[in-house]
Structures are given as structure tokens and as C-alpha cells.
Design a protein around this nucleic acid. Structure first.
Length: 394
RNA sequence: GGAGAGAUACCCAAGUGGCCAAAGGGAGCAGACUGUAAAUCUGCCGGCGUACGCCUUCGAAGGUUCGAAUCCUUCUCUCUCCA
């Protein structure tokens, strides 16, 4: 095993904060593999690059020879995390959770070593909680201290709802660490409060407090808000290579370096030399690296080629979705066709797109909102810069 | 338990009887410019119709009125203060 100091350097790389460093060092010196925990919420079945920041870090722990615990918060998910207000989450059935969890782990194992990962669900211990257990847990912490949390205080001030069960959430999450006897917990920066509570809960239950490693939140493709499915600014790791590549190239330059910092396996020196070159080249390299990781080298090459073809040379992708529509011989209004084909949400929207010059048929910009397609045959429809569809009118 | 405030379109937020499909901002979409970057500028931004227009929408359900997001009643939810 690597020397404790060197391990610490590796562990801290890219992180925001490491709490409990001294104890961690002691544990490392003891030479026993650490139990490293990170929790995930199985309400959304898809992982995106934002989750990968954490998983990437978990992988590093694995490489250092530690035991990684991939905790699926199936119980806490039903409690509802404090960030989503007033939306009643549909209660997932055990089957759905199982299915989500499988998708989750399958995706995570593109980065993690499956054989070295312990997968756990927190219903395992939380579902067995008796009222007595529950009271014992809740008596370990005071309301005032819970209200110290920014989220909570802010919501109170802004007159937003704050439910009782949300206050309890951090305690439950903290108990996970007790049940798992975690030595280290990873979490996003936004999880800091919950994580700190976990340390105290562990102490209250007679365990040594885990070290906390917080990672920055990856901004989504908009470059402002954290990557999240609900903001629609995410890059899902199961997205097709071309999609992934395109999204990565559309991020801002500043954001690109963040992605490098948090997701790339490139060394700091390599990144430095990329910074000296043209940003476009660096962005392509990033996009290729990510696509290669979640798909394959080959897919990455193809995605790049396709991209250059479509955008740099204003060509078309090699593969374009095809749809057929039956014609009765009468002229078909383009706008209506577009709505039918899903290229626009409504006829009106389609008309707007057309009159704004955003629609091409066989490479010709159509500006007449009343434009109709008369003859049967094949047409290539293009909306905006990147949406293509082959229409076969029969 | 008592008193008060509030719920408006994807989000924030104006609007207190007709001029409201509903100001403004953000997000989004399209165009110009580019490196499909950012910034900037332009247009659009509930649905249907080329348009005058029509239909559905302002927490929910009823009611008053020629006419309601706006007034009344009940209900649901949230917040604040007091106990």
C-alpha cells in the first residue's frame, strides 16, 4: 500500500474539503483498508457526469486498495431530500427501486471496479427501525443545530415550506454511516451539512467519526447551475456518443476546464499544455475522452468525425432517423408535418420556426409558413442546426 | 387554539371588474456573429387559424355580474406572529 502521505495527496486532489484529516492519517498509517462510503439516491434511474465526479473519486480509493461502499439510499429517498420543495415524490415500489438501482450500478461500474465494490441499501437497517430506535436517533441532535443549516434557514426566511421529515433526513443519513461503520464518506459540497451530522451521530453511537471528503458540484451545460436532470442541463452517461460529444462541445471554455479538473484522467501537466493550445482542440480532446470512457474509443472517433461533418462543414450526420408518413395525394403542409413528426411541439411552433428561417427541406431554407409538400418521395428535414429527420412521404 | 399574509404561465414576478393570453426578468427555441463556445444583437415564446378572430389558462369548486386573475362563499396548501 502507498505511503499515507502520498495517499492523502491523491485523496485530496480536486476535492473541496477534507474534514478529519488527522484521524484519517492515523487510520491510513494503521494500514487497514478504509471503508469508504458514498450514498446515491435511486429516484432517478440515470446517472450523469455530475455523479461521476464522486464515482471517479471512489475509483481512486479503490485503486489505493480501500473498500468502497456504494450505498443506495432507497429508504431515505422515500423520505425526500430537502432540496425539492412541495413536489410530492411518487413513492417508488420496491421493484422500481431495484430496477433503478441496477441501472445505477451498471452505469457506475463503467468507472468502478465491480469486484471491489460493496453495494448496500439503507432499507436494510432503516426499515427495521422501531419507534424506540427512532427516538434514540432523534435525541442525538437538537433542532437549533439542524436549523443552522443554510438550506433550512434560507427556506424559513423565504417563507418556503419546510417539513418535519426533512429535518430528520440528515439524521437518517448519518445513521447509515453508523450501520456501515464508515471510515470515510464522500459527498458533494452541498452535502456538507448532512455529512457533518453523520460524524456526530457516529460518535453518539460509540464509533469513531468518519472523515469527510467533499467534492465540488459539477456545473451543468448551462455553466451556472449544478448538473441535474431537473434543470435539463445534464449529460447522461448513457446518452448516445454523438449526443454526448455535441453537448460537451457546446459548454463554455471556463466550464471545460472544470470538467477537466473533475472528470479527466489526464495529469495536471497534460491539462496545462492543453490550456496553452486552442480551446477548441482541448474541448474536442475532452469530449473524446469522456465518450471513450462511457462508450468506446471507436465511438469517440466516430462522434468526432460526425461532428466535424455536421457542424464544421455544415454537412449531415451519417445516420439520420427516418420516418414515414402516408399521403393521400393531397398537399401536406410542412408545419403540420413537423408537428406530427415531433420536430415541433405544435403547429404554431412549427410555423414560427419556419418563418424565422430555422427550417430547411433538402438543404433549402423555407420561410413560407404555408409551405406544403406536394409530391410523394423522400425529403430531408432540418430544424435548427442539429435536428435532422428523413421523411418518406408515401 | 388565536390573528394576519399569500397561492398568477417552465421559474421569479407585476396585475384588484372590461384596454389581460395576462407587464418585466430569467430559462428555452430560432436567426446573425463564432470555435454548434462565451458575450452581443434580433425575433419568437398557451393552443387552433395566414390575419380581424376563436378556444383553454391566473391553487380547487361554486356564486355575483352583460363581463372576473381581479368581488363573494367554501375548500386545499404554504408562510408569519401570538399562545
Amino acid at each position: 500500500m502507498m505511503a499515507p502521505e502520498k495517499q492523502l495527496d491523491e485523496i485530496k486532489r480536486g476535492s473541496v474539503e477534507l474534514i478529519g484529516e488527522a484521524e484519517l492519517k492515523e487510520k491510513l498509517k494503521a494500514g487497514k483498508p478504509l471503508r469508504v462510503k458514498a450514498g446515491f439516491d435511486p429516484t432517478a434511474p440515470d446517472l450523469h457526469l455530475g455523479h461521476m465526479v464522486l464515482i471517479h473519486k471512489l475509483r481512486q480509493f479503490q485503486d489505493l486498495g480501500h473498500q468502497v461502499i456504494f450505498l443506495i439510499g432507497d429508504f431515505t429517498a422515500s423520505v425526500g431530500d430537502p432540496s425539492g420543495r412541495s413536489k410530492t415524490r411518487p413513492a417508488l415500489t420496491p421493484d422500481e427501486i431495484k430496477a433503478n438501482a441496477k441501472t445505477y450500478t451498471d452505469q457506475a461500474f463503467k468507472v468502478l471496479d465491480r469486484n471491489k465494490t460493496e453495494i448496500r441499501f439503507n432499507t436494510e437497517w432503516l426499515a427495521k427501525f422501531t419507534p424506540t430506535d427512532f427516538i434514540k436517533l432523534t435525541s442525538q441532535y437538537t433542532v437549533a443545530r439542524l436549523l443552522e443549516r443554510d438550506d433550512f434557514g434560507k427556506r424559513l426566511k423565504e417563507q418556503q415550506p419546510l417539513s418535519l421529515h426533512e429535518l430528520i433526513y440528515p439524521l437518517l443519513q448519518g445513521y447509515d454511516s453508523v450501520a456501515l461503520k464508515a471510515d470515510v464518506e464522500l459527498g458533494g459540497q452541498d452535502q456538507k451539512f448532512n455529512l457533518v451530522v453523520a460524524r456526530e451521530i457516529q460518535r453518539a453511537y460509540g464509533q469513531s467519526a468518519e472523515a469527510l471528503l467533499t467534492m465540488p458540484l459539477l456545473e451543468g451545460t448551462d455553466g451556472v447551475q449544478k448538473m441535474s436532470k431537473s434543470y435539463g442541463n445534464y449529460i447522461g452517461i448513457t446518452e448516445p456518443p454523438q449526443e454526448m460529444f455535441g453537448k460537451l462541445l457546446s459548454i463554455t471554455d471556463d466550464l471545460m476546464w472544470r470538467y477537466y479538473e473533475l472528470l479527466s484522467t489526464k495529469t495536471l501537466d497534460e491539462i496545462k499544455s492543453l490550456k496553452a493550445g486552442h480551446p477548441k482542440l482541448a474541448k474536442v480532446a475532452l469530449a473524446k475522452e469522456v465518450v471513450a470512457r462511457f462508450h468506446s474509443e471507436q465511438a469517440a472517433d466516430e462522434a468526432e468525425k460526425n461532428f466535424e461533418q455536421v457542424f464544421a462543414q455544415k454537412g449531415k450526420p451519417d445516420e439520420i432517423e427516418e420516418k414515414q408518413i402516408k399521403s393521400d395525394g393531397s398537399p401536406k403542409e410542412l408545419a403540420i408535418l413537423m408537428a406530427e413528426l415531433g420536430l415541433a411541439k405544435s403547429n404554431s411552433e412549427a410555423r414560427r420556426l419556419i418563418s424565422q428561417g430555422g427550417v430547411r427541406v433538402d438543404d433549402v431554407v423555407i420561410k413560407d409558413a404555408k409551405h406544403s409538400i406536394v409530391n410523394k418521395g423522400d425529403y430531408l428535414l432540418q430544424v435548427g442546426k442539429r435536428r435532422f429527420l428523413k421523411l418518406s412521404l408515401q
